[in-house]
Amino acid sequence: MISFELNGKTTEVTVAPDTALLWVVRDHLKLKGSKFGCGMGLCGACSMLIDGESTRTCVLPMAAIQGRKVTTIEGIGTPDMLSTLQSAWVEASVAQCGYCQSGQLVSATALLRKNSNPSDNEIDEAMSGNICRCGTYPNIKKAIKQAAKDLGEDSGQLQMVAYFDPNSIQQEA
């Protein structure tokens, strides 16, 4: 059995220790916000915060997760309680197809946690692990800068969810 903290909640799973975290979260724990894109840690669609760092979870075995803090997009904000970054994202209409966006938001959240006022180069560096085939990069930059500004004015939070109840999920189709 492997025990870790998922979105503020202690979680225990019994799976083969080489199972990738992404599949445990998506298929066993039914949180679908994190996506499968490449299976090789190349595209970033599966990004989650592991102890605050944006991490590719499609290649991260559960054995490496024991005792660690995992935050998925669901643990950052919800439709009713958007984080400041998510609000900026919505205002800038960043998403196109939307598939990579959870991963983008996770990486941007990790960036703003460490750097409250990132430069263009710092944004490039922090976000270059996340591919967007729709090319939302110009709006991603815009939203990150807006969120940095809003957070700097003390009018927001990077993470709205302290404890995420998986039963609260409603998918919009």
């Binding site: 949180l31 679908k32 916000g33 994190s34 996506k35 998925t72 997009i73 669901e74 904000g77 919800t78 439709p79 958007l82 998510q86 994202w89 919505v90 205002e91 209409s93 960043v94 998403a95 939307g98 598939y99 966006q101 959870s102 938001l105 999920i169 409603q170 998918q171 919009e172 189709a173």
Partner: peptide
Amino acid sequence: RRLDGVAKATGTAQF
């Protein structure tokens, strides 16, 4: 604003 923006910024859009 895009109407699918909130769902796609929160991982709740269903693919």
